[in-house]
Every structure is written in structure tokens, then in C-alpha cells.
Amino acid sequence: MKVKIKKWTGVAVWKWTANDDSCGICRMPFEACCPDCRIPGDDCPLVWGQCSHPFHIHCIMKWLSSQQMAAAQLCPMCRQGWRFR
């Protein structure tokens, strides 16, 4: 043995798992942020419903709050009842 690793400093970039897709509500790619935000990342996170559809959290919250009846809060993609995963 001639060489041994003492210390390793690595670099990793994190992305959303749904990265290749775009948000069903605002049509922006998940890689980018919702139209109300300026910077993607922690400040504009994604959420998944039980139906496994992801949205920008700002987009889905806006959608949900625009729904009249709380009971009828549905996923805009599949019309199942929306529940956060």
C-alpha cells in the first residue's frame, strides 16, 4: 500500500426527483421555481400528493384554497381527493 485516503471532500448537487417533469399547475419545470418565486430550491419546494403527483407547494396551495368546499379538494391532475404524502 503506497497511498491512503485521509480525507475526502466531495461535492453533490441535489435535485427534485420529479425534476424532468414540469408542474401541472404553472407549467414551469420543477427544476425552476413557481412563477411567484425568483430562486428555485428550498424556498420553493415541491410536494407530492397521495396520488403521487408533484406540484410546487405554492401552486398547489393556491389551487386548494381556491376550491370552494374543503371536502372537494381534488388533485388537479387526477381528480382524486388531495392529500399530502
Partner: peptide, 10 residues
Amino acid sequence: DLNVSILTMG
């Protein structure tokens, strides 16, 4: 001894 810098894409 591992140190990782985790970067946000944007």
C-alpha cells in the same frame, strides 16, 4: 473522513 458540499441547483 468524508465531507460533502451539497449544492442547490439554481
